[in-house]
Design a protein around this nucleic acid. Structure first.
Length: 940
RNA sequence: GGGCGAUUAGCUCAGUGGGAGAGCGCUUCCUUCACACGGAAGAGGUCGCAGGUUCAAUCCCUGCAUCGCCUACCA
C-alpha cells in the first residue's frame, strides 16, 4: 500500500511530471496517425517578453482544451513559438548597446542584426519556456519563431504575390511616426490618450494690413509649415476674407484664406491654420485645395531646415515655447485656454506621435477585408463570445490601408530592390537622381570637401563608390517614381541594365505581417507536401485576448483566406484581460502586477491553473485575487486527502468495471456521470468557469461531503464483501474524477494516477470520461436520505444540541417507498446525524418535547424532552413558517389568477400547484407543532 | 461625438420569462480515527432607478443614472 503525505504539496510533484510527459512524446502528434486532428497555434508572445498573467490565462485555456481533446481521442497539436517583435526587440538591444556607448548605425546593419540574434539566443524566448512551469502540453519539437527560415520564406512569398497582384504598393502620404523609435507605425500601433493641453490663439495679419485673423491651435510650432488658414464657407465673420492673403508670422510667407466645410465655426475661433505636412485633417484639406506641404519637423522630432534658421534643429516642444515667446514679443499671441484633447502615443515607447509625410509600403486592405468579413458572416469562423462580431464588422468596414514598412533593422527586410543606374521612364535621367542619401557622419571626398549626403547620382559623380554610399547612409530616401523590383530571390544585378549597383529597400516589415501568416507558415507553408499543413490546417481554435483582435486575428483571417483559400481557424475564443482584484489593469507603473511564476511557486501550478479556469467567464474581465488561488489549493488538498482516505482502506484499486446494486453507490455513479457530461458540455462551449465549478462541486460537495461520509459505516463495521464493494466504488469514482480533472490540474492528477492506481501510461492519454451510466431513480431516492439527514442536523445546529450528545429521532414517513429507503440506509443516517436510535414508519408519533422538521414525504421529530428549549424551538419554527408563508402567499395569488390558469403552459400550472400543495402541507405541520409547543409552554 | 458592455449577498462574480445562486468573508458550534488547507448549522439581496410588454420580469423593450472598454479628422 502506498502512503500519501498528510497534505498536498505541489513542490514535491509538479516538476518531475513535465519531464516525463515530454520524454513520453505525448505532446507530439503524428500527423498520419488515426484520429481527428485538433490544432491550436499559440498566439506568439514577444520574444522579449516574460510571462505575465495574460499569457498564463491564455496558456491555461489552451492547455485545458488540448489535454481534454487529447484524452477524447483527437490527435492534438498545440504549436508554440514567439514573434520577433521588431520594434520592441530592437529597442531592447539598442538600450543594451547604449550602455556600452554604441550606436547601431556605427555598428552597421549586419553587425547589429548579429547582436540581436545573439541577444535572442541568450535571453529571448524565455517566456515560452516559462509556459512549461504551467504544465503546457505544447509540442516543442515544432516550436517556431517568426524570423525562422521557413517563416521568412512564407513572408517573402506572400509579399511578392501581393505585390504582383497590385495589393502592395508604395505611397507618399502622412503617416504616424515615432520620433524615438524612428519608424513609421500603423494606425493600430498608436494609442490615444487624453491630455490636458492648451489651445493657443494666434493672430495672423492680413497681407494688406487691414487686420488679422485669429487662429486656434494646440500645436503652435507647426505654424512654420502652415500653407493656409481655413474657415467655414458660411461663417459670416470670415466670409469676406476668403481668398485674401495672410502674412504668416515669423516667416513672412504668404498664405491664403480658404473655405472648407470641415471647419467647425463653433470651435476655437472658427479659423484653422492648415499644416498639411503635420496633421491628418490638414492633409485632407490640403488635398482638396491643392495646398503645398511644408514639412518643418524631421524624423528625429526636431525642426527641419524648412522651419527656418532660427528654429531649425530645435526639439519640437522647445520650438513650441520659442514660437509662443516670439509671437508674444510681436503682439501676435492673443492668449490661451485650457483644452483637453487626445494625443497619439507610440504603443511601444509612449512617445508622442508625429504625423510625417514619408514614403511607405502599404497593403491594399479592402479586397482582403471583404473576404474576411464574409467568413465571419457565413459562420465559417465563429467568434466566441459572439458579442465581438459587431466590433469586428465595424472595424473591418472602416479599415484603412495597412502601412507595413518600418524603418528599423530587426525584421523581415522588404524584398524589393532599386537600380540607380537604370534610366527612368521615357528616357528621363537615371533613377539615381531620385535617390537621396543622408550620411551618418560627414564623408570627406577626394577633393577635400566634406559632405553629409546627397543625391545618389551626384555622390557617384563626386567620386564615391556604390559601397561607400550605401555604407555611409543613415537614411535612404527613394522617390516614389523609382521602379521597385520585387523578387522571391535576392537580386544580384539589375535585370534591365545589368548594373551590379543595386540598392535594396532599407525597410523591414511590420511584425504583424509575419504573424498574420502564423497559422499556415508554422505548419510548413509554402513548402510543398507538408503533412502538418494537410492535417492541421485549418486549425481548430484560436485562443486570444481581445486586445489583438484587429492587430492579429483579423489579419490572420485575411491572409489565411487569401493564401490558403480556407479560414485559418474554425473558432476564435476571445478571453478577458486579467486585472487586479480591484479591477485595475495590471501595469508595472501602477505596481499592481502579480507574477504568475510567483503564484506557481507559492500555490503550485495546478491551483493557479484551476483559479484561472474558474475565473474565465465569458465576456468579463478577470479580476485576479490571490485569495482565490489559495482557495483552490485547498480544493486540491481536499482531493488529495480524499484519496488518502480511500487508499488507507488497504485494498488495491480494482480494474474491473463495477456494477453496484446499492443505493449510495448507484447515486454517486450517477452524479459522476452527470458531472462528466456537464464538464464536457461546458468545455465544448468554452465555458471554462462552469466546467471548473461543476467538477469542484462534485468532488467536494457530493463525493467528499456525502458519498465518502456515507461509506464510513460500511468501511468501519461492514463485512469483507460489503467493504470490498464500497472500496471498489470509491476507487472507481476517484479514477474517473481525476481523469475529468486532469486538463485543469494535470500534475496532481498524474501523480495520483501513477502512484495510487499504478498506471504505467500517462493519464494524459487515458480516455476522458463521458456517457457514463446514470441512475435517475437512485438520485431521487438519495434525496430522501439527504433530506432526512439535513433535517436532523438542522435541528441539532439551530437548537445548539452538542455534537457529542447522542440523540434519538422519529421519522414519520408518508409513503412506503420512503420508509423502505430510509430503513435500508439506517446505519448511515444514524452515523451522519450522530443518532443512537431512529424510529421510522408511517405510524410514528410525535413524542412530547420533540423538535420538528417537515420534509418532503416525511416529518422528522427529535425528542429531547428536558433539553428542549421550548421558546427557542417555537422561535425556530416561526422563522421557518414565515419563510413558507411568503411562498404560499405568492403561489396562492398566482393560482387564483384566472389569466394565469388560462395563459400559462399547463406544465407550469401543474408545477406551481404541486409546489403549493407541498408548502401548504409543510405550513400546516409546522403550525400544528407550534400549537403543541405553545400548549406546553402555557401549561408550564 | 459614435458604439459596445456592465450594474445581483460584505467582496469577487455565475445565472434564468414561472421557487434568488456559488466561492470567499461573516456568525454559532465542533480538534469525531481523509482533510482545521477540515466538518455541521446559520445570517445576509426591492437583482442600479423609472416606465412599458406579459397571466407572470432580476431576465424582454424604452428612458435615465453610474462605471468600464473600444472607436473618432474635438484644429
Amino acid at each position: 500500500m502506498i502512503e500519501l503525505k498528510k497534505s498536498y504539496s505541489p513542490e514535491d510533484i509538479e516538476d518531475k511530471w513535465y519531464v516525463v510527459w515530454e520524454k513520453g512524446g505525448h505532446f507530439k502528434p503524428d500527423p498520419n496517425a488515426a484520429g481527428e486532428p485538433f490544432c491550436i497555434v499559440i498566439p506568439p508572445p514577444n520574444v522579449t517578453g516574460s510571462l505575465h498573467m495574460g499569457h498564463a490565462l491564455n496558456a491555461a485555456i489552451q492547455d485545458i482544451l488540448s489535454r481534454w481533446k487529447r484524452m477524447s481521442g483527437y490527435k492534438v497539436l498545440w504549436l508554440p513559438g514567439t514573434d520577433h517583435a521588431g520594434i520592441a526587440t530592437q529597442n531592447v538591444v539598442e538600450r543594451e548597446l547604449a550602455k556600452e556607448g554604441i550606436d547601431r548605425h556605427k555598428l552597421g546593419r549586419d553587425a547589429f542584426i548579429e547582436k540581436v540574434w545573439k541577444w535572442k539566443a541568450e535571453y529571448g524566448g524565455r517566456i515560452i519556456h516559462q509556459l512549461k512551469k504551467l504544465g503546457s502540453s505544447c509540442d516543442w519539437s515544432r516550436e517556431r519563431f517568426t524570423l525562422d527560415e521557413g517563416l521568412s520564406k512564407a513572408v517573402r512569398e506572400v509579399f511578392v504575390r501581393l505585390f504582383e497582384e497590385g495589393l502592395i504598393y508604395r505611397d507618399n502620404r502622412l503617416i504616424n511616426w515615432c520620433p524615438r523609435c524612428h519608424t513609421a507605425l500603423s494606425d493600430l500601433e498608436v494609442e490615444y490618450e487624453e491630455i490636458e493641453g492648451k489651445l493657443y490663439h494666434m493672430k495672423y495679419p492680413l497681407k494688406d494690413g487691414s487686420g488679422y485673423i485669429t487662429v486656434a491651435t494646440t500645436r503652435p510650432e507647426t505654424m512654420l509649415g502652415d500653407t493656409a488658414v481655413a474657415v467655414h464657407p458660411e461663417d459670416d465673420r470670415y466670409k469676406n476674407l476668403i481668398g485674401k492673403a495672410l502674412s504668416l508670422p515669423l516667416t513672412g510667407r504668404e498664405i491664403p484664406v480658404i473655405a472648407d466645410d470641415a471647419v467647425d465655426p463653433a470651435f476655437g475661433t472658427g479659423a484653422v491654420k492648415v499644416t498639411p505636412a503635420h496633421d491628418f485633417n490638414d492633409e485632407a484639406i490640403g488635398k482638396r485645395h491643392n495646398l503645398r506641404s511644408v514639412g518643418v519637423i524631421s524624423e528625429d522630432g526636431r525642426m527641419s531646415a524648412d522651419a527656418g534658421e532660427r528654429y531649425s534643429g530645435l526639439d519640437r516642444y522647445r520650438c513650441r515655447k520659442k514660437i509662443i515667446d516670439d509671437l508674444n514679443e510681436r503682439g501676435l499671441m492673443e492668449g490661451d485656454e485650457k483644452h483637453k484633447h487626445s494625443v497619439g502615443h507610440c504603443y511601444r515607447c509612449k512617445t508622442i506621435i508625429e504625423p510625417l509625410l514619408t514614403i511607405q509600403w502599404y497593403v491594399k486592405i479592402e479586397p482582403l477585408a471583404s473576404e474576411a468579413v464574409k467568413a465571419v458572416q457565413d459562420k465559417r469562423i465563429r467568434l466566441i463570445p459572439d458579442s465581438w462580431e459587431n466590433n469586428y464588422f465595424a472595424w473591418m468596414r472602416d479599415i484603412k490601408d495597412w502601412c507595413i514598412s518600418r524603418q528599423i533593422w530587426w525584421g523581415h527586410r522588404i524584398p524589393v530592390w532599386y537600380c540607380p543606374d537604370c534610366k527612368g521612364e521615357n528616357g528621363t535621367p537615371p533613377q539615381g537622381e531620385l535617390i537621396e542619401h543622408i550620411f551618418l557622419q560627414p564623408v570627406r571626398l577626394n577633393d577635400g570637401r566634406e559632405i553629409t549626403g546627397g543625391v545618389y547620382s551626384e555622390l557617384r559623380t563626386a567620386g564615391l563608390s556604390h559601397e561607400d554610399i550605401i555604407g555611409n547612409s543613415k537614411i535612404i530616401r527613394i522617390a516614389k517614381r523609382v521602379k521597385p523590383i520585387c523578387l522571391r530571390d535576392d537580386l544580384k544585378e539589375c535585370p534591365e541594365c545589368g548594373s551590379k549597383n543595386i540598392i535594396r529597400d532599407p525597410d523591414v516589415l511590420d511584425t504583424w505581417f509575419s504573424s498574420a501568416l502564423w497559422p499556415f507558415s508554422t505548419l510548413g507553408w509554402p513548402a510543398e507536401g507538408s503533412d502538418d499543413l494537410k492535417t492541421f490546417y485549418p486549425t481548430s481554435v484560436l485562443v486570444t485576448g481581445f486586445d489583438i483582435l484587429f492587430f492579429w486575428v483579423a489579419r490572420m483571417i485575411m491572409m489565411g483566406l487569401k493564401f490558403m483559400d480556407e479560414v485559418p481557424f474554425r473558432d476564435v475564443y476571445i478571453h478577458a484581460l486579467v486585472r487586479d482584484s480591484r479591477g485595475q489593469k495590471m501595469s508595472k507603473s501602477k505596481g499592481n502586477v502579480i507574477d504568475p511564476l510567483l503564484m506557481i511557486d507559492k500555490y503550485g501550478a495546478d491551483a493557479f491553473r484551476f483559479t484561472l479556469a474558474a475565473f474565465a467567464a465569458q465576456g468579463r474581465d478577470v479580476r485576479f485575487s490571490e485569495e482565490r488561488v489559495e482557495g483552490y489549493r485547498h480544493f486540491i488538498n481536499k482531493l488529495w486527502n480524499a484519496t488518502k482516505f480511500i487508499v488507507s482502506q488497504g485494498r488495491q484499486p480494482s480494474a474491473v468495471n463495477i456494477q453496484p446494486s446499492t443505493l449510495p453507490e448507484r447515486w454517486i455513479l450517477s452524479r459522476l456521470a452527470f458531472a462528466a457530461d456537464e464538464v464536457n458540455r461546458n468545455l465544448e462551449n468554452y465555458r471554462f468557469n462552469d466546467a471548473a465549478n461543476c467538477i469542484y462541486h462534485f468532488v467536494w460537495h457530493e463525493f467528499c461531503d456525502w458519498y465518502i461520509e456515507f461509506t464510513k459505516p460500511v468501511l468501519y463495521h461492514g463485512d469483507d464483501k460489503e467493504k470490498a464493494e464500497v472500496i471498489d466504488c470509491l476507487f472507481f469514482v476517484l479514477e474517473k474524477t481525476i481523469r475529468i480533472l486532469h486538463p485543469f490540474i494535470p500534475h496532481v492528477t498524474e501523480e495520483l494516477w501513477s502512484s495510487v492506481f499504478g498506471h504505467d501510461e500517462s493519464i494524459m492519454i487515458s480516455q476522458y470520461p463521458s456517457e457514463l451510466p446514470k441512475y435517475p431513480d437512485a438520485e431521487e431516492k438519495m434525496d430522501y436520505i439527504i433530506n432526512a439527514v439535513t433535517g436532523i442536523r438542522s435541528i441539532r445546529g439551530e437548537l445548539n444540541i452538542a455534537p457529542s450528545l447522542e440523540i434519538k429521532a422519529d421519522i414519520k414517513t408518508l409513503s412506503e417507498d420512503v420508509e423502505d429507503i430510509l430503513k435500508g440506509n439506517l446505519t448511515a443516517i444514524m452515523k451522519l446525524t450522530r443518532c443512537k436510535d431512529i424510529n421510522i414508519g408511517a405510524g410514528v408519533k410525535r413524542l412530547k418535547g420533540s423538535a420538528v422538521s417537515v420534509e418532503d414525504k416525511m416529518e422528522i421529530y427529535v425528542p429531547i424532552e428536558g433539553l428542549l428549549d421550548v421558546k427557542a424551538e417555537i422561535e425556530r419554527l416561526r422563522k421557518e413558517e414565515s419563510k413558507i408563508n411568503d411562498g404560499v402567499a405568492m403561489l396562492n395569488k398566482k393560482l387564483s389568477n384566472e389569466d394565469f390558469l388560462k395563459n400559462a403552459p399547463k406544465a407550469i400550472v401543474e408545477k406551481e400547484r404541486a409546489k403549493y400543495d407541498d408548502l401548504a402541507h409543510k405550513k400546516e405541520k409546522i403550525e400544528e407543532n407550534i400549537k403543541i409547543l405553545n400548549a406546553v409552554m402555557n401549561s408550564a
